[in-house]
Simulated scan of single mutants.
Amino acid sequence: MAGAILGPVVPQIQTGVGVSESLAGLIITTHAAFIVLTSPVAGILVDRFGPRRPFIGGLLLYAVGGGTGLVIDDFIPLLVSRAVLGVGVAFVYTGITVLIYDLYEGQQMNRALGLRSGANSVGGAVWPLVGGGLGTVSWQLPFGVYLIALPLGLAAIATIPPTTRETGVPTTQNESSSDNSHTGSNGLAAIASGFQRQPALLLIYLLYFGTNAFLYAIVVYYPQLLETVGVTSSLWIGLYLTVNGIAGGVSGTLYDRLKSRVDARFLVLVAFILWTIAFGTAASVNSPIGLVIPVALFGFGVGLVFPSAFIWIEALAPKQLQGQFSSYLAMAGYIGQFVSPILFGVFVSPFGIRGVFIAAALFASVGMATLSLAVLTSLRRSSVKDQS
């Protein structure tokens, strides 16, 4: 919701506050910058006080920062409110993640993370339609939707129990031993130690960065691709992007069932295969109907990758630092969204708009090949270990 709900009304915001097009764009991007800047702080506070209170506080900031746009019609105060929204998102994002880690385990955690990913994808499809509809009445009215965070905050106060991080009482022997194994570490030294113990964490952040970069390549450049086949209506363009979100919602909802049958590495490998096919199809198909396929395939892959990344963070990060390591995942994702137009934009001038999707297909195929090699290597090691 944070950025998507205002996307359709940027031109009206520009007129309403009397600024240039580029300055109006800051209304969409400022919150993302503050998510990146404040996510580490959110992670530290979640680790120190538990996820419940930072999550609830984040919802309050979310409502204040987002909802004040209902009554603000001056550019600078509106920009400040978007910064407050970004801080709220950082706390909500990390708080949700660690709450799921603390309240669920095993198959239930897989399901919760899958549903979280599915909700994100469906929200990305629904909220632009809501924002566009409300924007036909007033450019300020879409800001009112952010106030939904207030009843959600009250529901969180009433229903979310304190977790072991908040009470300090471990519920299992494994939790206790995990915590004790790291009691000598703190601050930057503990973070550095975590990366040293589990260098694969960096690959997870790279995966999340790349997934979000691919996602925003679709968001930014797919409308231009659709124009080449005669699809110019904003309504129809929005429906194509809605297909992407719905597909991600479906795979996210099914994630725990898929995860119970195959390892997360295989699910991510399937995602890379789907993305390679999707981007290759986008680069070659010349019909409006054919261009539905790439967004559906890409969305389905996103619903497999996002929960897998969170599962790996939960498994690899030291328990008492999961807030901070989860916050870095949020940073990687939003940085990926920010640099995506720059990363893929360099291919437009020499190769045209389809060059963006040729490049994305090549990047996805490299990821597919790399992951295939890693999976085969791990299978070989497991086979050797079993034989010995």
Rank of each mutant, 00 (worst) to 15 (best):
I5M: 11
Q12H: 11
I13S: 03
S22V: 13
S22H: 08
A24R: 07
G25S: 09
H31S: 14
A32Q: 13
I44L: 13
L45T: 01
L45K: 01
G50P: 05
F55T: 09
L59C: 08
Y62V: 04
A63L: 07
V64I: 15
G66V: 01
G67Y: 06
D73P: 00
D74Y: 06
D74G: 00
P77I: 10
L78M: 14
V84L: 14
G86P: 06
V89D: 06
V92C: 14
Y93D: 15
Y93K: 00
G95Y: 04
I96L: 14
L115D: 00
G118A: 01
G135I: 04
V137H: 05
L141N: 01
L147H: 09
P151R: 11
T167D: 09
G168V: 02
V169K: 15
N174Q: 14
T183A: 11
N186S: 15
G187K: 03
A190P: 05
I191W: 02
R197L: 13
P199Y: 08
L207D: 03
Y208M: 12
F209R: 09
G210R: 03
F214V: 06
V219G: 00
Y221G: 09
Y222A: 04
Q224A: 14
I237S: 08
V243S: 12
A247R: 05
S251D: 01
S260I: 09
T276H: 05
T276W: 02
F279A: 03
G280N: 06
S287H: 04
V295G: 02
L297A: 07
F310N: 12
I311V: 13
A317F: 08
K319T: 06
Q320H: 07
L321T: 03
L321V: 02
F325P: 07
M331E: 07
G333L: 10
P341L: 09
P350N: 10
P350K: 08
F357M: 08
L371K: 04
T377V: 12
L379W: 12
R381W: 02
S388N: 03
S388L: 09
